[in-house]
Write a protein that binds this DNA or RNA. Structure first.
Length: 864
RNA sequence: GCCCGUGUAAUCCAAUUGGCAGAGAUAGGCGACUUAAAAUCGCUCCAGUGCGGGUUCGAAUCCCGCCACGGGCACCA
C-alpha cells in the first residue's frame, strides 16, 4: 500500500470505502434478537428536506452514527434509520412563489439531501427510509388519527385559537413562544374563534408528568421544561350560589381552599358565561365598555404581568358557601377564560394578584392565615401573606394548619355539596387543524345527517388532490378545490363534504420512530413484534428546540398507542441527547449593525470593515445565510474528507454544548488523521501485519508493558465515554490522540505481538469516529474483512497494573514531595515511609504529626 | 419574579465525582530538519478554577450569599 499511495487522500479513500460497505451490506439492519438487550436503536431526529444539509444536521447524524457503529462493534444488532419530515409550508410556499409542484419539489430536495448525506459515511439503513408526505406513510398517519377518534381523543370544537397571519393557518399553543410569536414564521399570532380539530393530550397529562421521573436518561433541563409546560396544580373547585338564583352557582378553582374565609369578592373572566346574568342594569354599561376595551388589546398585552390589574363590578352577588355572607362579583382582565373554571375567589390577604386588585379598588382585605402562633395584628398587611400557616377567623376551621387545613375545607365542601378536590393543568389540548394544502388530510367526512364520520379504513389513504390551486390567501386550498371535498357520506350515502383541514406536521413526526421498526409493512403502521424488538429508542439525538413540541407530542402518541395495545412501551425514548448548535464566526459593523462576510475580512486578528475601515465586532452565532457565517458541509468534505469533519465536530465541544466552528481547529484534526496514516504506513513498512493475531509472550520488556498500558487505558476510557452515564466524544477523541502519541514514540521498538495489538486496537477504537480511514488502514495492514465487522477490543485489567506508583506526600494538605513505592504497599507501610521521609523531617521539625491521612495508591497527608 | 444550566490558560476544552489543576487541541514563542519555505519532529510561555464567605487534613468539585452569560416558565388562581 504505502508504495502506491503514500499520502492520506480522503477524496480517493472515502468513496472507495463507501462502495465496499455497500457491497458488504454493512448498513442493513439485522434481524432483531429475542433478547431486547441485544438490540440497539440509535435515532436522530429526522430532518425537514429543505434541500440543503447544514452543519447542525451533520453534528446530529454524526453523533448518532458514532453510537450506532460503536454498538455494532460491541456485538449489538443495531437499527439506525433515516427519513424525512416532508410535509410543511416551505414546499407550499415554493409552489406559490415559483409555480412548482410541492410533491416534486420535496422529492427533489430529498434526493439532493440524501446525496449530501451519503458523503458523510453514515451507517444508515436506507431500506427503511420513511417519507411522511408519501401516501404509503400518511395513510397510516390517517389510520392513527382514526384510532384517536375512536378512543374519544380527537374532537372538533369552536375555540379561540392562535392564528398565524403570515403562514395563514392556526397553530397549537406549543408552537407559539413566550413573546406570542409563531415558532415557524416569527409573526405575532392573532386570536380567532374557529371550529377546529383537537387531540385530547390533557387526558394523559398526569402520565406525561409522572412518567418524566422514569426518564433517567433525559437531560434534567428537558424534563423540567416539560413539567413546567404541563403545569399541574392541585386544589379544589368551590361553588358560590348566585344570590339571585340559588340553583345556579359560580364555580371557582383554587389551590388554596384553606383561605376560603378570606374571600372578599369573586372574579370572573370577562368572557365567562354567567357574566350577563350577574350584571345589574346599573353596571351593564360599565361591564360592556370594559369588555370592548379588552377586545381591542392583544392577548399578549392582556396577560403581561406588569400591567395593572383592571376590573369592573357586575353589581351581582353570590353567597359564600360556608359563611353564607354576600360576596360581590367582579370581572377582571387578570382572570383567564380558559384556565381552571374561568373564575377565581378573591383572597387579597393571601394572594398577591388579589392583593393588588383589592388595594386598587378598595375591596376589603381579611387575614385568615397566619404564621403558627402569631395573630393577625402581628404584621402590617402591606403585601399578601402567601405561605401556608394557621387558620384564624375561619369559623369551624380555626387553628387548623397547612395541608390539613386545605383538606378539611375540601372535605367540608364535599360533604356540603359545594365543591370537591380538583387538579388543573396549564397544558391545553393539541390543536392539529391546519388550513394549508401540503399536509396530511384529516380523514373525516362531514354529513348533514350523520355529523363528522370517519373515513372507513379500507378507503385510506385520503390522498391530496394533485391539481389544487395554491395561493397565499383566501382560505384552505382544499376548501377551494371544486370537486375534491365532494363525496358521499360513508354511513348514509348522501352527498357530504370532506374535511378540508390538514394535520399539523407534528402529527407525522409523532410516530415515525415506530414506522422505522417495520417500514415495509403494508398491512398496518407497524407490528407489535417489531416495536417490541426495538422500542424504546435506546439513544435519541436532536436539538433542544423540540424539548416540548415534538418530544411531548411523541410521548403522548406512545401513551395512547400503549393504552390501545398497539405498542408495549409507555415511553418512546429511553435516552435523549440534546445537541448544541453549530456556530459560525460572525463579523458585524458595530455602528451600521451590518454583517460582513468572513471572506471579506482580510486580517482575522484585526477585522476591519472592507468598506469603511472600521473595526468589526467578532462573535460566534448560529450559522445563517443572513449573517454570512455559515460553513457548507460539502465544502469541508471536499477539502478534508468526511472523517476530518466528523472528528472535528465530535472533538471541538461536548455534544450538548454549542460548538464554535474554527477552520484552524479543523486543520488540526486533519493533521491528526494524517499522523495516524503515517504511523500505520511506517508500521507496515517495518513488516507489521494484523492478519494473524500473534500470542503475547509471558514476559514483556517494561517499554512494552508501558505501551500495552497505554492501549488498554484507551480501551477503558473510550468504552466509558461511549457507554457511560454521559456521552463524551470529545474526551474519547483526545484518548485516541493520546494513544497515537504513545504509539508514535514506542511502536517501532515494540515486540511484534505488542505492536500488532496496539495497531489493531487503535484502528478499531478509531472506527466509529473516522470509519473510512480506519477501515482503509485495516485492509492495507492485512486485516480480515471490514473493520466494522470486528469486535470491540477486550480490556485486559492486568495491562493496567503498575509495579510501582507515585504517592503524593502532603503536609497539611500542601504537596511537599512524593514517594515511589510498590503498587501494593499498604496503609501502615505508607505511613511509615512517609514519616521516615525527608519531607517529614523538613516540615515537621522533629515533632510527631497530630494526624496522618493515608489514601492508598494516592497520597499521604501529614497534619502537624 | 421563579426554575434549570454554564463560568478553569490567549482560545476551545479535561480533571477517576473531595485527593498533585492540565489529559487533548488551537494559536503564540524557541529549536531541529531544509539552500529556503511548507510539511514534519522536539521543547516552551500562559490560569490557581467568576466574586465573597464556610465545611474539611485537603475544595474546580460540597454548603451559604452574590455576579455574569444562556435557556425555560411567568396574572395559570
Amino acid at each position: 500500500m504505502a508504495s502506491q499511495e503514500s499520502r492520506y487522500s480522503p477524496a480517493e479513500l472515502e468513496p472507495r470505502r463507501q462502495q465496499r460497505w455497500a457491497e458488504l451490506g454493512l448498513d442493513r439492519t439485522p434481524e432483531p434478537s429475542d433478547q431486547r438487550s441485544d438490540n440497539f436503536y440509535a435515532l436522530s431526529m429526522f430532518p425537514y428536506p429543505s434541500g440543503n444539509l447544514h452543519m447542525g444536521h451533520v453534528r446530529n447524524y454524526v453523533i448518532t452514527d458514532v453510537i450506532a457503529r460503536a454498538q455494532r462493534l460491541k456485538g449489538k444488532r443495531v437499527l439506525h434509520p433515516m427519513g424525512w419530515d416532508a410535509f410543511g409550508l416551505p414546499a407550499e410556499n415554493a409552489a406559490i412563489e415559483r409555480g412548482v409542484d410541492p410533491a416534486a419539489w420535496t422529492e427533489q430536495n430529498i434526493a439532493q439531501m440524501r446525496q449530501q448525506l451519503s458523503r458523510l459515511g453514515l451507517s444508515i439503513d436506507w431500506e427503511r427510509e420513511v417519507t411522511t408526505c408519501r401516501s404509503d406513510y400518511y395513510r397510516w398517519t390517517q389510520w392513527l388519527f382514526l384510532q384517536f377518534l375512536d378512543a374519544g381523543l380527537a374532537y372538533r370544537k369552536e375555540a379561540t385559537v392562535n392564528w398565524d397571519p403570515v403562514d395563514q393557518t392556526v397553530l397549537a399553543n406549543e408552537q407559539v413562544d413566550a413573546d406570542g410569536r409563531s415558532w415557524r414564521s416569527g409573526a405575532l399570532v392573532e386570536k380567532r374563534k374557529l371550529r377546529q380539530w383537537f387531540l385530547k393530550i390533557t387526558a394523559v397529562a398526569d402520565e406525561l408528568l409522572d412518567d418524566l421521573e422514569s426518564l433517567k436518561g433525559w437531560p434534567e433541563r428537558v424534563r423540567t421544561m416539560q413539567a413546567n409546560w404541563i403545569g399541574r396544580s392541585t386544589g379544589a373547585t368551590l361553588r358560590f350560589p348566585l344570590a339571585a338564583k340559588a340553583s345556579e352557582a359560580v364555580e371557582v378553582f383554587t389551590t388554596r381552599p384553606d383561605t376560603v374565609y378570606g374571600v372578599s369578592y369573586v372574579v370572573l373572566a370577562p368572557e365567562h358565561a354567567l357574566v350577563d346574568q350577574l350584571t345589574t342594569d346599573e353596571q351593564r354599561p360599565a361591564v360592556e365598555q370594559f369588555r370592548q376595551e379588552l377586545e381591542a388589546i392583544s392577548d399578549q398585552d392582556r396577560v403581561a404581568e406588569d400591567r395593572p390589574k383592571r376590573g369592573v363590578a357586575t353589581g351581582g352577588t353570590v353567597v359564600h358557601p360556608f359563611s353564607g355572607e354576600s360576596v360581590p362579583v367582579w370581572i377582571a382582565d387578570y382572570v383567564l377564560p380558559d384556565y381552571g373554571t374561568g373564575a377565581v375567589m378573591g383572597v387579597p390577604a393571601h394572594d398577591s394578584r388579589d392583593y393588588a386588585f383589592a388595594s386598587h379598588y378598595g375591596l376589603p382585605i381579611t387575614t385568615v392565615v397566619v404564621k403558627p402562633g402569631s395573630t393577625a395584628a402581628d404584621g402590617p398587611a402591606d403585601e399578601a401573606f402567601t405561605e401556608l400557616g394557621e387558620l384564624i377567623h375561619s369559623g369551624p376551621f380555626d387553628g387548623l394548619r397547612d395541608e390539613a387545613a386545605k383538606q378539611a375545607v375540601i372535605d367540608a365542601a364535599a360533604a356540603a355539596g359545594v365543591g370537591e378536590a380538583k387538579v388543573s393543568y396549564r397544558l391545553r389540548d393539541w390543536l392539529i387543524s391546519r388550513q394549508r394544502y401540503w399536509g396530511c388530510p384529516i380523514p373525516v367526512i362531514h354529513c348533514d345527517d350523520c355529523g363528522a364520520v370517519p373515513v372507513p379504513e379500507e378507503q385510506l389513504p385520503v390522498e391530496l388532490p394533485a391539481d389544487a390551486e395554491l395561493g397565499a390567501s383566501g382560505g384552505s386550498p382544499l376548501e377551494r378545490h371544486p370537486t375534491w371535498s365532494q363525496v358521499a357520506c360513508p354511513r348514509c350515502g348522501k352527498p357530504a363534504r370532506r374535511e378540508t383541514d390538514t394535520m399539523d406536521t407534528f402529527m407525522c413526526s409523532s410516530w415515525y420512530y415506530l414506522r422505522y421498526t417495520d417500514a415495509a409493512n403494508n398491512e398496518q403502521p407497524f407490528s407489535v413484534e417489531a416495536t417490541k424488538a426495538w422500542l424504546p429508542v435506546d439513544q435519541y439525538v436532536g436539538g433542544v428546540e423540540h424539548a416540548i413540541l415534538h418530544l411531548l407530542y411523541s410521548r403522548f402518541f406512545t401513551k395512547v398507542l400503549n393504552q390501545r395495545g398497539l405498542v408495549e412501551c409507555r415511553e418512546p425514548f429511553a435516552r435523549l441527547l440534546t445537541q448544541g448548535m453549530v456556530q459560525g464566526i460572525t463579523y458585524r459593523n458595530p455602528t451600521t449593525r451590518r454583517y460582513v462576510a468572513p471572506a471579506a475580512v482580510t486580517d482575522p486578528q484585526q477585522p476591519l470593515d472592507p468598506e469603511s475601515g472600521e473595526a468589526l465586532e467578532v462573535f460566534f452565532e448560529k450559522m445563517s445565510k443572513s449573517k454570512y457565517n455559515g460553513v457548507d458541509p460539502g465544502t469541508v468534505v471536499d477539502r478534508y474528507g468526511a472523517d476530518t469533519a466528523r472528528m472535528f465536530i465530535l472533538f471541538k465541544a461536548p455534544p450538548e454544548k454549542d460548538l464554535e466552528w474554527d477552520d484552524a481547529d479543523v486543520e488540526g484534526q486533519y493533521r491528526f488523521l494524517q499522523r495516524i496514516w503515517r504511523l500505520c504506513a511506517a508500521a507496515q513498512e517495518s513488516g507489521l501485519s494484523i492478519a494473524e493475531p500473534l500470542p503475547l509472550p509471558s514476559q514483556l520488556e517494561s517499554s512494552d508493558q508501558e505501551l500495552r498500558r497505554a492501549v488498554h487505558t484507551a480501551i477503558e476510557a473510550i468504552s466509558d465515554d461511549l457507554e457511560g452515564e454521559e456521552l463524551q466524544f470529545n474526551t474519547a477523541v483526545s484518548e485516541l490522540m493520546k494513544l497515537s502519541n504513545a504509539m508514535g514514540s514506542s511502536l517501532a521498538e515494540a515486540a511484534a505481538p505488542v505492536a500488532q495489538e496496539a495497531v489493531r486496537t487503535l484502528l478499531i477504537l478509531l472506527a466509529p469516529f473516522a470509519p473510512h480511514l480506519a477501515d482503509d488502514l485495516w485492509e492495507q495492514l492485512g486485516g480480515a474483512g471490514s473493520i466494522h465487522q470486528q469486535q470491540w477490543p477486550h480490556l485486559d485489567p492486568n495491562a493496567l497494573v503498575r509495579d510501582t506508583i507515585t504517592v503524593v506526600l502532603q503536609v497539611k494538605g500542601k504537596v511537599r514531595g512524593n514517594l515511589e513505592v510498590p503498587a501494593d504497599t499498604d496503609k501502615a507501610e505508607l505511613e511509615q515511609l512517609a514519616l521516615a521521609s525527608d519531607v517529614a523531617k523538613k516540615w515537621l521539625e522533629g515533632n510527631a504529626p497530630r494526624r496522618v491521612i493515608v489514601v492508598p495508591g494516592k497520597l499521604v497527608n501529614l497534619v502537624p
